[in-house]
Every structure is written in C-alpha cells, then in structure tokens.
Simulated assay, not measured.
Amino acid sequence: MILSPIDPKQPLQTEYSQAVADLVSALRTGLASNLHSVYVYGSVARRCALLHRSNLDVIIVSHQSFAQQRTTLFNTIKWQFQKRYPHITEINFKTAMVSEVASLDSIFSWGFLLRHCAMCVYGENLSECFGDYEPSWEIAKHWNMDIEDWLAVYRNRIARAKDDQELHKSQRIIAKKMLRASYSLVIPRDRNWYDSPLECGKHFLRYHPEMQVEVERLVIMLSSRVIPKRSIIGMIDSYGDWLVKQYKKTEFRIG
C-alpha cells in the first residue's frame, strides 16, 4: 500500500489558520533570507486539533544554522502566541538545514515526516524531493525503536513531577508514544500508517486483542484526567517492558 500525503488544498481549521499565518510572518521577519520553508505537522496539519488541548507542531528549514538567535526567536514567538492564541497549548519547533533534509540519509526521517506527516505552509516544498512511501519495518523502527529511552526519561519525569500540570503533560506525552509504538510493531502486517494515538491503539488491538486493558489505560492517560503517579509508572514498568522486548524480537527477526 502506498501512503497518501496530507492534502494541502484542504483548508486548516479556522481557529488555527490565522495562527499559522502569523507564525510564518514572525519567522520571515526573524530569519529573513535564511528561511527556506515552513511546515506544520501533527493534529493541526491533519485538521483534527482540539482547542486548549492540541499543540502547534512546526518544522523550520533554513539555509544556514541560526543557533545563536534560536532561543530568543522561539521564546518571543511563544510569548506572543500565549497572548493572541490561548487555545494553542504549546508550540513545538523542529529545525533543520536544507542540506540535512535533501539527503539520502534522511529518507526515513525528514523525508517521511515531510512527505506523509506534514504540510508546507511557506517556501519551497522539500517533500517533493521524495517519492511516496510504503509502510515498512524500516519506517516503524526509525520512529519508535527509541521507545526504551523514552520510557526511562518519562518514568523519571513523572516520578519527579512537582504538580498536576507537569504530571498531566508527561502522562499524555508518554501515552501517545506508547500507543504509536504499539502500532508500529504491527505495521509489517497491517501495511498502513496512523499518526493519531487513538487510531494506533485501535488497529494494534486487531493483532493483539490480549492487550485490550493496557490500551484502554493508555487512552485514559490521554484524557484530561490526572492519573496517580504509581499507576503511570506501573504501566511504564509492565506494558513498557513488553513493548521494548517486542521491538528487540521484531528487529532480530526482520532486521
């Protein structure tokens, strides 16, 4: 099965279209001729963002590095957006230079991300440098083989969370990662790709119905409800350990 790119002709949700336009304007002002192109990905690009729940995920491609002005530029944009667009919970930035993106080494990283998970909102669309992709273990493992590292990092963050807001943010992030990692395990059989964590869980269960309870718990972790630390850590230690072992088994089998 050939994966379809996100339709660029479909308009963004009304609540996000002006925010994206303002973001592009701020980046053009801040980076001037160094800015090559801008992309949005995640729920805003898929037109399923939720007010006061969804982040604005952005990819900035530049001609040269802008490391020296990066922190100031991004903090200024975030401060402005907190005032103008309170329904956007956070802006997440990924950055790369043109030479990094338009490279054979980036086929399963930047290539796949731009071609099938993102939408160009300014500049030359580098996704056109890449052909369409078929679902494969190469894609699956590139995006989720790091699950063991994520589990260790977020186990620590959750254990050290100082308040409910910090805990809730971490529980949602690791729940999304675990649901997506779950589906990636079955991509070689299912031959598809889903970015939505809920869709990932649903299609994963077609192959592992015995994990129904675990997936239901991860879905609860995605909700607005704050889960006790011990319960989240329990999921990371039990189901997370199962995921890690399955990845190692699959990599050994498929390579």
Rank of each mutant, 00 (worst) to 15 (best):
R46I: 00
Y39H: 08
S25T: 11
I60S: 08
F66K: 03
D22T: 02
L31F: 02
P11R: 13
Y41S: 01
G30P: 04
N55G: 06
T29E: 14
L56I: 03
L27D: 03
N55V: 03
R46N: 10
Q10P: 00
V61T: 08
T14P: 00
S54C: 12
Q10T: 11
S43E: 02
Y16Q: 05
S25M: 05
Q64N: 13
V61L: 07
Q64T: 12
F66L: 11
V20G: 04
Q10D: 00
R47V: 10
V61S: 03
L23I: 07
S54R: 03
V40K: 04
L31W: 02
E15W: 06
G30S: 10
S25R: 06
V24Y: 13
A49Y: 01
A21Y: 12
Q10K: 15
A45Q: 12
S54G: 09
T14Q: 13
I60P: 02
Q64Y: 13
L12E: 10
Y16A: 06
E15Q: 13
Y41D: 02
I59C: 11
G42R: 04
V20P: 02
G42Q: 05
Q13R: 10
T14W: 00
L31P: 04
A19D: 01
Q68D: 12
V38L: 11
L12I: 09
A67R: 14
L50H: 02
S33Q: 15
V40S: 04
S65V: 14
R28Y: 00
S17T: 10
V40P: 01
Y39M: 08
A67T: 10
A26P: 00
T14V: 14
Y41A: 03
L27I: 09
L51P: 02
L50P: 00
Q64I: 09
D22K: 08
N55I: 00
Q68P: 00
T29I: 13
D22I: 00
Y39I: 03
S33L: 11
Q68W: 03
V20S: 08
G30T: 08
H52L: 11
P11A: 12
Q18T: 12
Q18W: 02
R47C: 10
D22L: 03
R53H: 14
D22Q: 12
V58Y: 04
S65Q: 13
L31S: 05
V24K: 03
Y16G: 02
A67M: 10
I59T: 06
T14S: 14
L35E: 08
V38I: 12
Q13A: 10
A32R: 15
R53Y: 14
A49P: 01
Y41N: 03
Q13H: 06
R47P: 01
Q10G: 00
G30M: 05
S54H: 05
T14E: 12
S37E: 09
I59L: 07
G30K: 09
F66I: 07
V44P: 00
N34T: 07
R28E: 15
Q68E: 15
Y41E: 02
S65R: 15
S65Y: 09
S25H: 09
L35T: 10
L51V: 07
A49L: 04
L27G: 04
T29A: 13
L50W: 04
E15P: 01
T14A: 15
E15F: 04
N34M: 12
S43D: 01
Y39A: 05
A32D: 15
Y39N: 01
N55Y: 05
H52P: 00
A26D: 11
L12T: 09
P11M: 08
